[in-house]
Amino acid sequence: MTYDLLVNGKKYVVDVDGDIPLLWVLRDTIGLTGTKFGCGIAMCGACTVQVDGVPVRSCVVPVAEAAAKPITTIEAIGETAEGARVQKAWLDIDVVQCGYCQSGQIMSATAFLAANPSPTDEDIDAVMAGNICRCGTYPRIRAAIKLAAAGR
């Protein structure tokens, strides 16, 4: 069956089973590889994208559920005001190490900041607990989110 996807403002028609997770359609079928595979069970957050502005774990979202809704991935999050601010803060603090989880971190942080303009450490932890980083960039993620909030 074919599904119409609206990814980063662009329309794609994909011919896959409806239960295939959105992640693989984005990465393999469409070729947007910025969204990462980490666990496949919504445990690590590496695959986070936004559907209708809500961050979701694309590794468990069936493509059929995401069809026809606006999907934003890391490749286009910089076009939003929050996304750009978060990316800039990530650069200013030099958050990244291996970088693999950072697409997901930024997608979560962006949705978070849009709703919470002045987060505390506790607020940050409550949201970012969903995104694992094995390099341990957590202290800098906290700092960068605060910087992004301050730069509003």
Binding site: G40, T48, P55, V56, P62, S108, A126
Partner: peptide, 22 residues
């Protein structure tokens, strides 16, 4: 909280996953 809402992982229906104990 925004950024990690229930629906970040939980859909309108149960979502089967493959390859996992879950």
């Amino acid at each position: 909280p925004a950024g990690l809402v229930c629906s970040t992982c939980h859909g309108a229906e149960n979502r089967p996953v493959v390859g996992s104990r879950m």
